[in-house]
């Protein structure tokens, strides 16, 4: 495998947990603590997929995501959205939407499914 996955979350524990699990699955993992940092790393490190918290300090995630092209994004979120909104997000290019607290197996399955 060795594909690079970017995990963007302002909570270090979440990044650490997701990193540990994805590295065990054979992926290379890079981290970002803000959406702005995620955009920088998306442009420089060329990840194959991004797992991103929907609520982070700094520029709203939605603004940043518009600037990320051709990389599938899985939203992780403690924010509650309606089923209609989840459908709309997927129609607008978000690969998946996983609510926190999440089952790590669900995340791994989603990563495997949406990696190009």
């Amino acid at each position: 495998m060795n594909e690079t996955i970017l995990i963007a979350d302002d909570i270090a524990d979440i990044r650490t947990t997701v990193r540990a699990v994805l590295e065990k699955e054979g992926y290379r993992v890079i981290e970002a603590a803000t959406a702005d940092e995620a955009l920088k790393k998306a442009r420089t490190a060329n990840p194959k997929l991004i797992v991103m918290d929907i609520m982070m300090p700094g520029t709203p995630v939605g603004e940043i995501v518009k600037q990320i092209k051709n990389i599938p994004i899985i939203y992780l979120s403690a924010v509650r959205v309606s089923d209609t909104e989840k459908k709309e997000l997927k129609q607008n290019g978000i690969a998946d939407f996983i609510e926190k607290p999440f089952d790590i197996r669900e995340l791994v399955q989603s990563v495997k499914k949406h990696l190009p």
Binding site: A78, S82, T84, E85
Partner: peptide, 11 residues
């Protein structure tokens, strides 16, 4: 600050 309007409406 943690649920969208539409999700609260649905809830």
């Amino acid at each position: 600050l943690n649920k969208t309007f539409r999700s609260i409406d649905a809830l």
